[in-house]
């Protein structure tokens, strides 16, 4: 049955970390080329990592956080970000708000406002109610 794709076992965690490191390098180069939205898309792809391993989740969060913080023009971002990314982005915004870090929260709230306008309250519900695919 569709839905669960099965969680990767712990010995695969290394492979996931390697993939996240590769993603991180790609994001850095995209940011150097002033393509913050492309960087965010890259960061959100393959997220959340399909594992319960906390190391993988926090490694991925660091990468997504880097991309979120690089967004300057929020309205411009939404003109080129496809709706398929909305649900996962919302999850990471709540992760950002849970850190309590001032600049992170400011940035996440700014995007949150626009994202709610775009994707509706359903998007918030989807990110809060999913206890399986946590970020």
């Amino acid at each position: 049955m569709a839905g669960h794709e099965g969680f990767v076992e712990a010995d695969n965690a290394e492979a996931i970390i390697t993939r996240i490191e590769h993603k991180s390098r790609k994001i850095e180069s995209l940011l150097k080329q002033y393509k913050p939205v492309e960087a965010l898309k890259t960061a959100l792809e393959g997220s959340p990592p399909k594992t319960r391993d906390e190391r993988c989740k926090s490694a991925n969060w660091i990468v997504v956080h880097r991309a979120i913080m690089a967004i300057k023009d929020v309205d411009g971002m939404f003109s080129s970000l496809d709706p398929e990314y909305y649900d996962i982005l919302m999850k990471y915004l709540y992760k950002g708000l849970s850190t309590g870090d001032r600049p992170t929260c400011d940035q996440c709230l700014r995007i949150h406002e626009k994202l709610t306008e775009k994707a509706g309250l359903g998007c918030i519900l989807r990110s809060l109610s999913d206890t399986v695919n946590t970020v």
Partner: peptide, 13 residues
């Protein structure tokens, strides 16, 4: 062999 469709909507559940 069921076939499933999922529809996400923008409002409250």
């Amino acid at each position: 062999a069921p076939s499933a469709q999922t529809v996400a909507f923008r409002d409250l559940p």
